[in-house]
Design a protein around this nucleic acid. Sequence first.
DNA 1: CTGTTAGCGCGTTCAT
DNA 2: ATGAACGCGCTAACAG
Lengths: 330, 330
Amino acid sequence: MATIYDVAQRARVSPATVSRVLNGQATVDPGLAARVRTAVRDLNYRPNSVARSLRRSRTTLWAVIISDVGNPFFTALVRGVEDVGQRAGYSVVLCNSDEDPAKEARYVTAALEDRMAGVIISSSGRSANVNRLIEAGTPVVAIDRQISGTRVDSVLVDNEHGAELATAHLAAHGYRRIACITGPRKLSTAAQRLRGYQRALAANGLAAPACLVRHADFREEGGYAAMASLLDAADPPDAVFAANNLMTVGAVECLVDRGIGIPDRIGVVGFDEVPGARLFRPSLTTVAQPTYELGRTAATLLAERIAEPDRPPSTITLRTELKVRESSRR
Amino acid sequence: MATIYDVAQRARVSPATVSRVLNGQATVDPGLAARVRTAVRDLNYRPNSVARSLRRSRTTLWAVIISDVGNPFFTALVRGVEDVGQRAGYSVVLCNSDEDPAKEARYVTAALEDRMAGVIISSSGRSANVNRLIEAGTPVVAIDRQISGTRVDSVLVDNEHGAELATAHLAAHGYRRIACITGPRKLSTAAQRLRGYQRALAANGLAAPACLVRHADFREEGGYAAMASLLDAADPPDAVFAANNLMTVGAVECLVDRGIGIPDRIGVVGFDEVPGARLFRPSLTTVAQPTYELGRTAATLLAERIAEPDRPPSTITLRTELKVRESSRR
DNA sequence: CTGTTAGCGCGTTCAT
DNA sequence: ATGAACGCGCTAACAG
């Protein structure tokens, strides 16, 4: 593949002039510039961005580390990141950690070695990986999940408030034994949504026995198993709040399999919009998150931090919205 | 950030020795190797893979260019690519073209400039972009969609056969006016699935009037509109074969909105598994594709081509499977 | 087995 | 406004 020297030779100028024409910084004689552009076209020249990155000591790559590419929540988010990133001249490397801290660590290592311009991460728990990036001076933005004990730009949603609204809504519709299927203990989102649930119960004078709470894995299977376990308990619930989209699907599947009517025998509210929800009857009440916006915001924050590395970290919290549909009204 | 010279100085060896220890090619005196490893740890040294790539004239990045990150078909595929790629030492850059040839062209340019080690592409129609890659000597694998007029490694599924099975199945269950909602004319998958549909009709002695065929956009909205258009026609169908997953969802939504019973008034079969299908009653009959395997196979092929650039291109066709469920039996 | 040297392709001084 | 020379960090070739 042609190099800048080949172009220079063909255009009878120096490589420096070619570089100037291509990057449009300094002024170049129009005649020479035209010769250069012709030579570029003739040789089908593409600048080598590896050499460029080495010379400039910076790349145009962002890593987005998420825990599940199969979850529409994350793909919507990635789409938001990508749209903003591409506009700012960055390519996005999608890294799927599968909720596995070891895999996440490998991606962080790769981001470090590739000298990525920035990282957006929805971390699977511990702050160690994020700290490695910060120590190396790599711009980072935490998205969706909070990093405890580390000051870092973050884009979150009002998890506690959303969960509280969802639970209060169930209480307002006469449900009394409201269960909660939340996520892994280590994840901030799971903890915050559980807290919102508990606060709503307290505010409505309802008991919040531990036997109505399940910690699952934020996946469909986990939601199914948790729902089954709640139903098999001594005193089953009459409503359930599931703390993410896939677990909501699992829980509903379990109810359908057992022929338990929604919303009559059991009311259901899920956190985050559910894939395929439109096909399901009754339609599902959910706490909607601005997923695409989440990605856009994180990308914007990352671009700003790259431009201004020393400014203090900021946290942006986006609002959720309760979408009342049929699954929660009896 | 520390360089290989910093490490060499601290370990009192030459940079070349550090390189040898890190890459494990040549043999190095155990004592020196230990000193190097200590220095690496002390300085928290990370090799600069930009410099390495420049020196070696090759990178460890693959681009996967797909048309819709929001479609579970593509995310499953990407997951397969990524799993194989990571094992072979490659990171995967996910590029979402949104079915837009211009956006696809930009990603191809980026892949070229970044000297990516390889590209896996589900191209949105024309072969021009793929040809640019081939001319530049970049290893390419076409996935899901065939590239016409260009010899290139390809991983496809037996679209025509799958569509034929689906349509024949509807005919066998007594449906007589079977419609087809297929994709954009330019896409090989759309054309092949349409041909399979037509062949099955012919084999079963059924007419195949053009008024029963719709070309939509492979998205939910398109499926919905196409279904509506079929229902509003003079002589509506009693069954429909939808040529991809999202259009199936759209078509079913349309039927639900209009209160048209499935499978009694209209039988439904979709190509590719449908997101959220498990929640839907009646359950949907589909032509299942080995999506994850598709990705794995393409990645394997790409790795092989990188190792052996001059071997003749091969095409691998994976099998689909008809999953008979409730939506097609009356 | 180890060190010295050169160069991957580019952008950026510094002269002119 | 243009060109010559250097070096980003690394690894491969060669010498010792």
